[in-house]
Structures are given as structure tokens and as C-alpha cells.
């Protein structure tokens, strides 16, 4: 099995895409979970504001999702563009 340079580069791009999305998914997953746990706590303390709190939770989670989306973009770029 002869390995050529282009083949090696392609293999590295695939591996990079997998690692990028894999590692990039850790932070948002944990962070969004913390946001949701605190939102539940806040609703438990002040149930009247459940709507506002859920909305705020979703906005906060959307922001912490952004790094996951960056990882997804980089993974897709490595797979299909580079």
C-alpha cells in the first residue's frame, strides 16, 4: 500500500473534521445543561416568571451553542471544501 501525499492530506482533513466536531460538542453540551438547570431553579423560586425565564434560558443557550456551530462549520469545511 503506497501512501501518496494527497491521500495523507485528505486523511488528515477527515480526522481533523471528526476531532473538531467531537471536541467542539463537549463545551456547549455541558454549558447549555448548566443554563437549563439554573433556569429550572429560578422557575422553582419564582414560578410566575416561567415564560420570561424560559425565554432567557433559550437565548443564553443559543449563545453558548455558537461555539458548537463554529465546530460544525469547520468540520463541514474540512470535509467538503478544503
Amino acid at each position: 500500500m503506497a501512501i501518496e501525499g494527497a491521500d495523507l492530506v485528505k486523511a488528515a482533513a477527515f480526522l481533523g473534521a471528526g476531532i473538531s466536531m467531537g471536541l467542539g460538542a463537549i463545551g456547549p453540551g455541558v454549558g447549555e445543561g448548566m443554563a437549563a438547570a439554573k433556569a429550572c431553579e429560578a422557575i422553582g423560586r419564582n414560578p410566575k416568571e416561567a415564560g420570561l425565564l424560559t425565554r432567557t434560558m433559550l437565548v443564553g443557550q443559543a449563545v453558548s451553542e455558537s461555539t458548537g456551530i463554529y465546530s460544525l462549520v469547520i468540520a463541514l469545511l474540512l470535509l467538503f471544501v478544503v
Binding site: G16, I19, L23, A25, V30, G31, G33
Partner: peptide, 20 residues
């Protein structure tokens, strides 16, 4: 890479959903 991506990528959501 596909296996690594799914494996590592599932760690964070698993812990996060537990916290939530």
C-alpha cells in the same frame, strides 16, 4: 474519525443533559 467524532461529541451533551 467518524467513530471518534460521535464518541467524543456525545460526552458533553450527556453530562449537560444530566445537569439540566
Amino acid at each position: 474519525a467518524s467513530g471518534l467524532c460521535m464518541g467524543i461529541g456525545a460526552i458533553g451533551p450527556g453530562i449537560g443533559e444530566g445537569i439540566a
